[in-house]
Design a protein around this nucleic acid. Structure first.
Ligand code: MN
Ligand code: MN
Ligand code: ZN
Ligand code: ZN
Lengths: 134, 134
DNA sequence: CAATTATTTTACAATCATTCTAAACTACTT
DNA sequence: AAGTAGTTTAGAATGATTGTAAAATAATTG
């Protein structure tokens, strides 16, 4: 993604295109599916020779999530993961290397779910398929 | 559960029936399905007038899990939950009150799951159905 | 292009769930 | 009863994350 495209993307979402946000958006939104934690992303920008504080990474990941550019995933190890795939979908989680693989929602059929309790409605369904070496 | 039954249960699993473990086992294994965190369980024993350290609660929950008396559930809020239902099953999670409800594995049908990657095998499947007020 | 204002970044402290450590205590064996 | 191995505990440490307040920077205005 060019810097100009990244700037435009941020403007579109009413986020000031600061040096830090441009760097992170360029890394994240290259069209490929990415799963990052604050720490892994911090490592990736550092590898590019850019220094920015972990607090800014957290702030930015949450802002991107708020505007709908990212999805938060919890329950994978101890840290919070952020996903560039914002479609409703599920995950394989390889417990031997902490690797996530997308499963399109259309690839899983869930049937016979019991009725929700009185006055409650389903907000979402998260499926995690844990993988290990055979 | 009588104290004697609790003592026998612990002996059966080669765990010394200490005052602390007897109290926790009696609370947990009364035959009803329970979902606790270290903190909620700590509160419950405190309410019974028994004082024991949070470290012991953590130790005991992990020991009970290791021998198969409990199951660990992650991805529900920030804390680790422990479940007296050790059958393979899933959960409704009510996000308005942090309440968990069991869904028997037999009540959910998952079909069309994509193939696992080369050399990987499915270790387990966790389904969390998030509930909110309608 | 200043000057002003609004937003963002950052260093650093604080929080919270959990684990570690090492000393005091207790259950089991002899 | 004494000895030993296992357990509990207070308190420190850890690690992910969030809060704070000052310094830096982007946007706006004249
Ligand atoms: Mn968050
Ligand atoms: Mn654990
Ligand atoms: Zn994903
Ligand atoms: Zn359960």
């Amino acid at each position: 993604m060019t810097t100009q495209n990244t700037v435009d993307l941020l403007r579109l979402y009413k986020l000031r295109p600061t040096r830090q946000r441009v760097a992170l958006a360029a890394l994240l939104f290259d069209g490929t599916a990415r799963h990052v934690t604050a720490e892994t992303l911090h490592g990736q920008v550092k590898d590019m020779g850019i220094t920015l504080s972990l607090a800014t990474i957290y702030n930015t990941l949450h802002q991107f999530t708020k505007v709908g550019l990212l999805k938060e995933i919890r329950g994978i190890g101890d840290a919070t993961w952020f996903d560039t795939n914002i479609d409703q979908h599920h995950h394989f989680f390889d417990i031997t290397n902490d690797h996530l693989i997308d499963i399109p929602a259309s690839s899983i059929t869930i049937s016979n779910l019991p009725d929700s309790p009185q006055g409650k409605v389903i907000d979402g369904i998260d499926v995690i398929v844990r993988l290990s070496d055979e």
